[in-house]
Design a protein around this nucleic acid. Structure first.
Lengths: 341, 341
DNA sequence: TTTCAACACGAAAACGTTTTCGCGAGCTAT
DNA sequence: ATAGCTCGCGAAAACGTTTTCGTGTTGAAA
């Protein structure tokens, strides 16, 4: 087993000082060509690579970005990570991923764990529980310690930092407006409970679209799902009791479930009922019928978030407290689950 | 901005030595209760937390696991990460994720980057390109340096280390055997090119099942997909020209695509043709009809891999070269895409 | 011959820990 | 009174780097 070789060992072998070795490898002009070449040859032979940990300690920079997200088994989050990783890689950064599992405590623990020197900054999306408690002291804490944080998707106004979001309200508005344009009048909404920020915003967009088209909002047509487990019954009730002609769902799980339940009740999508989802994930693309949806462009979101974080890290000198909120454009992808009335 | 406080700063403030502070915080009996409590109170006040990087350097342990996978936007890999993260967390480890993007070069770069002190060991699944080139020197290299490596799913016999796999051949055998039991005779196979190890194994299982049931293997019924882009035409040809009564697909993308194309050609699944996929991902669960499939249990795979790696890390003393290959059991999930003939 | 610059290199500090060892003060026992 | 022991603490090394500064040797200029 050939353990990694250090500067000290090279120095000893070649009978020079550690400084000389270090300088040689960094092509310092202080070192004679003779020595320099000798050292470089030796280093190459033994495959010397500087130890990252030592460098991190010395430079007070880890070149590592911490990502904290609710869960990874979720296509949208996976795409965001993918985007972050691209930009991180292009800039010589690594990413370390922690999952909060939608738990406030885990979010805090992970954050504190990584804040002790492991990362230079964070990119995160809030857990449900955190959004519910509205407790963001842990995030404020790391910001106060001088670590940049970028929030994405599930953000909050209560903490000042860079953010990357989509215009959830506008996107929902567009989707519902599209349905109205196609001639639908009785449009139901399947959304989340209000404390999930994006759910709330999409609900707002839905209502706004109806109002601006002079359709009154019927609360009977709106169902709010708490947890995914028992959503089926609620949706079934909706479909059976209200004979709506279209459904807007705030995520693709709700959308595909609605489609399945419609089929079960002998309603064909899109002939009998049109459905639009949110998030252009695997489900929307591959289900039958494929689902018209609002594309969030997770890759772009991740890339943007990473770029903002790295910019702030490399700026570094004086930190301007001028935080930005970037809005990633969405677009409506029309597929088979919608038609014209 | 309250920067993180260090031992040195505490020592200075309290006018004691660094050693005294360190020992106090670690409840050393060498320190009088007076001093100990004083230091602890002060440390708590200033929210002292030891710097991970410094600890890593000192202990020569990072408590970090490197994960290198082909891509993260892939439900199976996401579940594996999820499983790894669970066990890592339970044991006080962090995970740092790198994506090879199916590229050999990126795999090498990532591996070398992380091998320079950033992680204690690796969990990885080979990129397609790596499997094609059959070049594993980079992996052997880090193993030689004394870093444990656990390979999962896409593994190779050419490198000696711990592995976690499913019995791909057996699982495929079971799936095809199930189809035969249901009365199907003309069973097609949609698989990958042979250098993808798991694709090859599943193909073998398919053939074995046919033979053991005295059905001859018809190469016309087997199509091998190189890249996902142009799989549709090949599958369409298959469905049109061979009137098979069932299809076994080696992943869920192939399966769902087959179903879509069947529908396009006025063949109903499962009435006209039965389909079994591989990988119990989002698609299989939510497509219509839902897809019968072989469940790989990614979470379990990830948990097992992490446990094996950590065991080896904590064993540490003498490394027994006795590498194990764990096999995660699979199970056939029967849903709507299959029926009886 | 003296002076001074250039050259080539080494010593040491610094990053933040933990841990071993040593040392002085105070006490007990002979 | 003195040896020896315990207690409480500090100095220093170690992990692997980079970088500043100092220093000795050499050669050339005055």
């Amino acid at each position: 087993m050939r353990k990694k070789v250090t500067l000290k060992q090279i120095a000893k072998e070649l009978d020079v000082s550690i400084s000389t070795v270090s300088k040689s490898l960094r092509d310092s002009h202080e070192i004679s060509e003779d020595t320099r070449l000798k050292v470089q040859a030796f280093a190459k032979l033994y495959n010397y690579k500087p130890n990252n940990i030592a460098l991190s300690l010395k430079n007070k920079k880890t070149k590592t970005i911490g990502i904290i997200i609710p869960e990874i088994v979720h296509h949208f989050f996976a795409t965001v990570i993918s985007g972050i990783e691209q930009v991180a890689n292009e800039n010589g950064y690594n990413v370390i991923v922690c999952l909060s599992d939608e738990s406030f405590d885990k979010e805090v623990i992970n954050l504190e764990m990584l804040a002790n020197g492991s990362t230079d900054g964070f990119i995160m999306s809030l857990s449900k529980e955190t959004q519910q408690k509205r407790d963001f002291h842990h995030i404020q804490e790391v910001i106060n310690q001088g670590m940049p944080v970028v929030l994405f998707d599930r953000v909050t106004n209560d903490v000042f930092c860079d953010k990357v979001i989509i215009d959830d309200k506008q996107a929902a508005f567009d989707a519902v407006h599209f349905l109205i344009e196609q001639g639908f009048k009785k449009i139901a909404l399947i959304t989340t409970v209000d404390y999930v920020s994006v759910g709330k915003l999409r609900t707002d967009g839905y209502k706004k679209a109806l109002k601006s088209n002079n359709i009154s909002v019927d609360e009977e047509l709106i169902i709010k799902i708490e947890d995914i487990e028992n959503c089926a019954v609620k949706i079934e009730n909706l479909i059976k009791e209200q004979n709506c002609d279209a459904i807007f769902a705030v995520n693709e799980l709700f959308a595909v479930t609605a489609i399945k339940i419609a089929a079960k009740n002998n309603l064909k999508v899109p002939d009998d009922i049109s459905v639009i989802g949110f998030t252009d994930g695997i489900i929307s693309q591959f289900s039958t019928p494929s689902i018209s949806t609002v594309s969030q462009n997770g890759i772009k979101m991740g890339r943007k978030a990473a770029q903002m974080l790295i910019d702030r890290l490399e700026l570094e000198d004086e930190e301007d407290e001028h935080y930005k909120t970037e809005i990633i454009e969405t677009n409506l992808i029309v597929r088979e689950s919608t038609t014209t009335k």
